[in-house]
């Protein structure tokens, strides 16, 4: 067993009947690493996490978490992990304090040592002044912090966070990520899923998952560098967005073209293609307001990877 490896997944697969939700996924997460799991809805992120938490049994492949096999030693795995599911999983009729007491109880943290730890996580999550508030009445950001606090009470060495910041305001999100990074700095391995690309930039390593398959892994910088060619952003009048997209998608010099907010992103072999692209647009009566190369974001990387995947 490699003690540096907190999560070690090899060809893990989950089938629901004939539907393959997770297809031979392999990756590794080291201690102290924040590992981001990215993918569109239904791509298999939660299913992968559930298998690693011992909630679902893998159909094939293996997963080791904190050194224990998820299929054969699920009980040992559960003692060493913290899990925050994508659904708010606290008791709404219980207060902050009572929720923490409950989780402390089922993790065997009763007694004075446990009480000190409860105070510690309460302070960490900034929850101390809300201790007698029912979980139901907490604002979104605090609910998530309470869920996190309950998940880390027993000092797990591996933390699974499934969309921990969904529907939370930007300031709370930033606070939440500060907590995650602090825990990673203290040696916890964190596997986190998110839909927010800006959050993905905070991760040490990323995995893109699409239709159950892993299509790329690596640190954010390397993923971006791996995007071949140059990325060109094209801005046109809002009404001409669709015609422009059609022109660019069928253009011989463009490898990929996709809508990106109010603009279009085009992948080309080199930036020398820019004048040609501009000319083609003008020829169709489309006035491009701006055409220039940009530094790709993670979303560009993702779109590019998916386009290649679909084309393949």
């Amino acid at each position: 067993m490699n003690s540096e490896l907190a999560i070690e997944v090899t060809d893990i697969t989950k089938r629901f009947g004939r539907f393959v939700a997770v297809d031979r996924v392999s990756f590794q997460v080291r201690r102290g690493e924040v590992f981001g799991f990215l993918g569109p809805n239904g791509s298999g992120k939660s299913t992968t996490i559930r298998m690693l938490c011992g909630i679902l049994l893998p159909t094939a492949g293996t997963g080791r978490v904190a050194g224990f096999d998820v299929a054969r030693q699920p009980e040992r795995v559960r003692e060493n992990i913290g899990y925050m599911s994508q659904k708010f999983s606290l008791y709404e009729e219980l207060t902050v304090q009572e929720n923490l007491d409950f989780f402390a109880g089922i993790y065997g943290l009763a007694g004075p040592g446990g009480a000190a730890r409860r105070e510690e996580v309460m302070a960490l999550g900034g929850l101390a002044s809300y201790r007698n508030v029912l979980a139901r009445d907490l604002p979104g950001g605090l609910r998530q912090r309470l869920a996190l606090a309950s998940a880390i009470l027993h000092r797990p060495s591996v933390l699974f966070l499934d969309e921990p910041t969904a529907g939370v305001d930007p300031i709370s999100r930033r606070q939440f990520w500060d907590l995650i990074r602090a825990m990673a700095a203290a040696g916890t391995a964190v596997l986190v899923t998110t839909h927010y690309m800006d959050e993905a930039e905070h991760c040490h390593a990323l995995a893109f998952i699409y239709q159950g398959r892993l299509i790329a892994t690596g640190p954010p910088a390397r993923l971006k560098a791996g995007l071949q060619g140059s990325l060109v952003e094209v801005e046109v009048e809002p009404g001409q967005l669709l015609p422009a997209l059609t022109v660019l998608q069928t253009h011989p010099l463009a490898r990929e073209a996709a809508m990106f907010g109010a603009a279009l992103h085009v992948t080309v072999d080199s930036s020398e293609a820019i004048p040609t692209l501009q000319a083609s647009l003008t020829a169709r009566g489309i006035a491009a307001r701006r055409v220039e190369t940009i530094v790709p974001s993670l979303e560009d990387v993702f779109v590019s990877l998916v386009t290649r995947e679909v084309g393949a």
């Binding site: 938490c53 909630i55 559960r78 708010f88 999983s89 606290l90 709404e92």
Partner: peptide
Amino acid sequence: RGTMEGLIASP
């Protein structure tokens, strides 16, 4: 309510 998942993932 989704609380069962948390319980299953616990010891």
